[in-house]
């Protein structure tokens, strides 16, 4: 499977302009015949919206339609799967979501999955939970590559999230993100990007999954989105990565056999599956105590 990861630089709040950019990207990619294209979190609006999220959020069918229209207008001959982050309005409840759609099918766009961000950062520069409601479920879904899961930004910082995704069968984890760059005191890259790579690599290697990360770039009111779009193999190897500042496209070919080989070589996921029941029954795990205390 040929996947393309888009390091996207939106115009803040200007959905028509950003859709035009999306279409131009589709036109550039269509001749290569990609099967999956991944855009970052909040790709069509920008990330820091505060109260304007209520004006710019749309429902999933509207988002799917918008993306599909761009794919069809690009002149592409074949259908393609697209992931894009967006602010979702579910009958007046607002989420930071990412949609997985199959575009260009004769019978119209197919919504394969919508993931609603579960970990809404509300500290420091972040204020998501003031405006948004968190998702309640981490689900996997089927793609041409196999079972996949989406984790949005901070979702991926909690090691249990890729673990659960992998236990549910994911062979591919897609991470749309909008990460304000911080830390000039490290090596040749932002410290926040170094940390991202460590987290993503660890998730890929521990569970034998491909991890595809697409980051926003560009400044939003002084906060620079740190790009850092990258892909990791099921062994945790960095396959390709982008810098922080330039809009760009990364392409990567995913091979199902790589997942099998990585898991056969280091069967950590199999080991976890075997041991997990014992861990889960451990009554010292706080979540279990809380469940027991629930009347």
């Amino acid at each position: 499977m040929l996947a393309a990861l888009i390091q996207f630089k939106p115009r803040k709040g200007d959905v028509p302009a950003n859709l035009a950019t999306m279409r131009a990207i589709f036109e550039q990619l269509a001749p290569k015949g990609p099967e999956l294209i991944v855009f970052p979190e909040a790709a069509l609006t920008g990330y820091f919206l505060e109260g304007a999220v209520y004006e710019l959020a749309v429902d999933a069918p509207t988002m799917a339609q918008r993306v599909d229209e761009q794919w069809r207008a690009s002149g592409a001959a074949a259908p393609c799967d697209v992931v894009a982050g967006f602010y979702e309005n579910v009958a007046g409840t607002f989420h930071n979501s990412a949609i997985y759609v199959r575009c260009g099918e004769p019978d119209g766009v197919h919504i394969v999955h919508v993931h609603r961000k579960m970990f809404l950062p509300t500290y420091g520069v972040f204020d998501e939970e003031r405006f948004l409601t968190r998702g309640r479920r981490l689900a996997t879904f089927e793609t041409p590559f196999g079972t996949a899961a989406i984790l949005i930004c901070e979702d991926a910082w909690h090691a249990i999230m890729p673990t659960i995704a992998a236990l549910k069968g994911a062979r591919l984890i897609i991470v749309p993100s909008a990460s304000p760059g911080r830390g000039l005191c490290g090596g040749d890259e932002l410290e926040s990007n170094t940390r991202w790579k460590a987290i993503l690599s660890s998730a890929a290697a521990e569970h034998g999954v491909y991890v595809l990360y697409a980051g926003l770039t560009g400044f939003e009111g002084g906060k620079g989105m740190s790009g850092g779009t990258c892909a990791f193999s099921p062994r945790g190897d960095l396959l390709q990565s982008a810098g922080p500042l330039e809009p760009c496209i990364i392409t990567v070919t995913l091979d199902r056999q790589e997942v099998d080989l990585a898991r056969a070589t280091i069967p950590l996921l199999g080991d976890l599956s075997a041991v997990l029941p014992d861990l889960w029954l451990d009554d010292e795990i706080p979540v279990m105590r809380r469940l027991e205390e629930t009347p």
Binding site: R11, K12, G181, L184, C185, G186, G187, D188, E189, L190, G218, F219, G221, G222, G224, P244, L245
Partner: peptide, 26 residues
């Protein structure tokens, strides 16, 4: 004690991009 030493080349690129985005683009 966290260091205050910066990667000056990276800082320059970041701040120049900030100026271009906040002035020209925005």
């Amino acid at each position: 004690e966290p260091s205050l030493a910066i990667n000056a080349a990276l800082a320059a690129r970041w701040l120049e991009a900030f100026l271009r985005d906040e002035m020209l683009v925005r």
